[in-house]
Structures are given as C-alpha cells and as structure tokens.
C-alpha cells in the first residue's frame, strides 16, 4: 500500500540551522526506509514564492504566479512510501522532521492501472 506524505509547514519560521538539520534528518530517514524496502521517493520543494499556477480553460492556457493560499502552512516537501497499513504510515509520518513544526498530511495513493511502474 502506497502513501503520499505531504509536509506542510510555515516557511517563514525555519532558521538556516533548523533547515540544515531537517534536511540531514530527512536524508537519514529515507535511507532507513530504503533499507526496509519502504522508500519510493521523497524531496523538499523550493518555497511557495517560486510556484507557478497553470490552468487550461476553454482550450486557453492561463499561467499565473502563485498559488498564495490564505493558510499559514505551505507545502514544503513530500515522501512517497510503502506501508502495510495506516498505523505503519502514521508511525513513519511522525518521524518526518517537519511534523515537529508543521503538519504531515497522509494520503493513500489511488492505484491507477496502466501507469508506468516506479523504480
């Protein structure tokens, strides 16, 4: 069973040292998950200020800066992992460094047939 873990935190509250610590903890966690065969992929994202929104309406492409949601927390990174059930996924989510400052949204992945295989 695959779970997507979306890491939401307030981008503005991280000091440079905290960010470095978060990265190295995350790398260690991904290696541990990889050792157990649970790691699929993971990555931090550049700040939301670098985001671009693309919409297609009536065949026309609309490109804008953003999104700038009203919420205090922004999507800052993600993990895609393999776990036997939600309890196992929750245990992994609780170890993601961002959980201490923000929120990890755990979403089961919908298995769409016909996609190219991961790995």
């Amino acid at each position: 069973m695959k779970y997507m873990m979306l890491v939401y935190t307030d981008e503005t509250i991280w000091t440079e040292n905290e960010r470095e610590a978060c990265f190295s903890e995350s790398v260690a966690l991904t290696h541990e998950l990889h050792g157990k065969g649970q790691y699929l992929t993971a990555s931090p994202l550049h700040p939301v200020a670098t985001a671009t929104s693309v919409r297609v309406r009536e065949g026309r492409r609309l490109v804008t800066d953003g999104p700038f949601a009203e919420t205090a927390e922004q999507l800052g990174g993600f993990y895609l992992i393999d776990a036997t059930n939600l309890d196992e996924a929750i245990a992994i989510a609780a170890r993601i460094p961002g959980a201490k400052k923000g929120t990890i949204e755990v979403r089961p992945v919908y298995e769409l047939p016909g996609l190219p295989r991961l790995n």
């Binding site: 036997t84 309890d87 089961p108």
Partner: peptide, 11 residues
C-alpha cells in the same frame, strides 16, 4: 478501506 486503517489491536 481506502486509507487501510488496520483491523488490529494497536501495538
């Protein structure tokens, strides 16, 4: 069903 909440007594 979708999130696979397990059917078990917790650890």
């Amino acid at each position: 069903r979708a999130a696979k909440i397990p059917y078990q007594v917790p650890s």
